[in-house]
Design a protein around this nucleic acid. Structure first.
Lengths: 337, 337
DNA sequence: CTCAAAATATGAAGCGCTTCATATGAACCG
DNA sequence: CGGTTCATATGAAGCGCTTCATATTTTGAG
């Protein structure tokens, strides 16, 4: 592959001149004649800049790193999609890391990897819900290049978060208004903690209304199949809930099928509400009522925050918490479309 | 951030020695004493290699590029997931590009971008179905670093393809065996061409059996909503099909809902078959019969092919076509689970 | 004509690392 | 004790680019 030196040689000028011309440096006065010669030589040689060398010299890679839980979950796929689009529009490429639950690829390892690859900035979705806010596992000077997605931070790092508690609070209130008094909450086993905001939001709504605590139903994961499995034991749920809120839409979709198999009709026998607002729920046979996270806004804002910071025009703190909206469809028994 | 030179200075040795020690170069004879000093200095300074500089010097970035249609489609998400995992296991990072249908980010533009970023290798999913095999839009020397995913190639580039025609052929045969004689085929408008393998496979099966051609039903895209919209006009379909094969699972899932709204029961009034084998179909109220692409095998093989090539231990040609399997569930009316 | 200012072009240093030919002792051998 | 050999460490070149201080030529005003 042709290098700058090759082009310079061919055009009969200095390498630095070629660099100036090809980069369109504004303050460089190059005669039209020379410029043309250089452009021609570059064209003929099929010259393409070596991004590595450029990045090394400029100290900038024009690459953003995204650490995300996994990409097969439609919720995260949407995020990755939005982030990629926004990054691309701002002239950045995306380096993708998933953490899954693989201890070998912890957030720490992923972030360090990206940092050492000299990405200009990083977006990270924590792999586990951090009760007191997320601590970015990176030296301080590196934290300045990070925006946390989906969680608030405990160390002052920029973030765009989601008020999950408010989401489930609203869902619970809505169901209460429809007359429900016995609730169930289906979530991955490890997230069935009262300090998890999704559950906390429910608990608050219930206690405010003097209603009993919800029946906690554990799932083995956060996929459809896990919701399905969990719902197969519906006959044994005591006290029997008339409304079921799920940790996410996938679980709700799986549960829907399990409940049907157990002979429970949604919403007549049990009202069903999911969380996330992915397209899948809309096409459930009984369209799924859900707490919809504004994924596009969240992702785009996060990228914007990051780019502000990188370009030195960020406020000291860029922190935003978005409130998810309840999208009422038929699965909760309201008249919704 | 500390550089090699900093470490060398602190340890009181030459920079090249530090490099040798930190890279564990096998043939370098360094005294235990020196080694320890260097390791200690590196530790104290929190030294981390600069991948950019290393890549520039070594001529290798340990990065693979993936060009894929989009990541919100579960089918592609699975592929991205599998590719990322396989790449990661082989020690490569993944640089992600989506082409969507955005003319600004054509395959050409994406591949060039990756190439100039000096990724070691690229995997590409063509954005449009190439009737005669895919031509990689890159200079010959670059093609050697490309593996095409999902399509066969017209220029000898490595690929892992899928025999779509065989997939729909089998699905059609299966439906014929169940007694169906009037077929419908629902696909994005631009893919409703007899030279598209999915349709071609159906046509072959039908003509072999002397059955009439299928009713071609156009959709405006390849998402659930497009299938839903298309199915809303079911009452006007003439001749009325008793079996409907869809271009992909998402379309089938959307169509399912549209058909229900039109009062058609699946599978009693119409048998329904999708394509891809994504998890979503399994959780449709009437579980979806589908032509399942072996996504894991396809992705892993492609990464393997690429790495073989990069490491110089590839056959002249690495080309593989996988045959998708019909997964029979209830939506086609067979007894399947 | 002269000289400062403007217009053009250049060379060299530097980004942080790898690599390889070469230097320096110490240890060994007969 | 001179000459090998081995163990250990080094310096310098190079990857391809950016950047900036400096050199050279041209221009136009006085």
């Amino acid at each position: 592959m042709a290098t700058l030196a090759d082009v310079a040689r061919r055009a009969g000028v200095a390498l630095s001149t070629v660099s100036a011309v090809l980069n369109n440096r504004p303050d460089c006065f190059v005669s039209e004649e020379t410029r043309r010669r250089i452009l021609k030589a570059a064209e003929e040689l099929g010259y393409r800049p070596n991004y590595l060398a450029r990045s090394l010299a400029r100290g900038k890679t024009e690459t953003l790193g995204l650490v995300i839980y996994e990409v097969i979950n439609p919720y995260f796929a949407r995020i990755a999609d939005e982030v990629e689009r926004a990054a691309r529009e701002a002239g950045y490429q995306l380096l993708l890391c998933t953490n899954r639950d693989d201890p070998e690829f912890s957030d720490q390892a992923n972030l360090e990897l990206l940092y050492h690859r000299r990405v200009d900035g990083m977006l990270v979705w924590a792999s586990r819900y951090p009760p007191d806010g997320y601590f970015v596992p990176l030296p301080d000077e590196a934290k300045a290049k990070v925006v946390v997605l989906g969680y608030h931070t405990a160390d002052g790092t920029d973030y765009v978060s989601v008020d999950r508690a408010e989401g489930t609070y609203r869902a619970t209130r809505h169901l209460m208004a429809l007359g429900h008094r016995q609730f169930g909450y289906l979530a991955p086993r490890e997230d069935l903690r009262p300090d998890h905001p999704k559950l906390a939001g429910m608990l608050r709504a219930l206690s405010e209304a003097g209603l009993p605590e919800p029946l906690l139903i554990p799932a083995d994961g956060h996929f459809r199949r896990d919701g399905y499995q969990a719902a197969l034991s519906a006959q044994e749920w005591r006290p029997r809930p008339t409304a079921l809120i799920c940790y996410n839409d996938l679980l709700a979709i799986g549960a829907y099928r399990g409940l049907r198999e157990q002979g429970w009709k949604v919403p007549d026998d049990i009202a069903l509400v999911g969380f996330d607002g992915i397209e899948d729920g809309e096409f459930l046979e009984v369209p799924l009522t859900t707490v919809a996270v504004p994924i596009g806004e969240m992702s785009q804002t996060a990228v914007q925050f990051l780019i502000n910071r990188l370009e030195g025009r960020a406020a000291e703190r860029q922190q935003l918490t978005l409130v998810p909206q309840l999208v009422v469809r038929q699965s909760c028994g309201a008249q919704g479309s």
